[in-house]
Amino acid sequence: MNGIRLVLTNFLSGLGRAQFFLLGVLSAIGPALLRPRIIVRQLYMIGVLSLVIIVISGMFIGMVLALQMANTLDRFGAEDAVGVIVALAVIRELGPVVTALLFAGRAGSALAAEIGLMRATDQLSAMEMMAVDPMRRVVAPRFIAGVISLPLLTAIFSVMAIGVAGGHLIAVDLLGGDTGTYWSQIHANVDLTDLRQCFIKSAVFGAVINWIAMYQGYHAPPTSEGVSTATTSTVVVSSLSILALDFVLTAFMFR
């Protein structure tokens, strides 16, 4: 009974601290924007370094989707619809969600470890003692970079999956479909509302992943075990949050 109460109060206090942390991050965003060079550096760490995994996963997911769909749709003589299905699936769901999951594994864990180590080696305290607010110099720039990076990565992922090498490669080059039909079918069935929702989702995911990662790192116990736990729970918690949030956002936005 006592154990349950302890777990519950720990959970609630962690949740509360995370909200205060978020408030701190949000209020530090303004001052952080005055230092664009730090943000550029973080765009590199968070965005550019995630590019390879995003591009490759996008290609393969587009290819496998097209292959599966082509096999099934062929039976109904509707293989022209392959492009539409790949495009809608990628833009509405797979693009934002898979990119966010990969991002959580690649960039989120790295962020948590980085901030956790900075805490463990007193770098954050040293900044405070140098009269530099780590929220403004360390946390907020990473947060901003995450919110910018994830929608861009999602767009790149989607283009890879639908066009460049994914669905298009399978549907047109391998199965002998027609490029014109492929694109016109997509064009007729995907509209800007889908795209807008795709980007709203991925911006929200970017904010949530970075929030979780940096909260975990910032409040990690200053030991090697603490940092490794923070890294693991970043990936677990943010993956679950992405999937749950995806459901909620979809339910809200698609009426």
Binding site: A155, S158, V159, G163, H187, D191, C198
Partner: peptide, 8 residues
Amino acid sequence: VLTFRVAS
């Protein structure tokens, strides 16, 4: 690409 090529 997504706005002009994919979406109408």
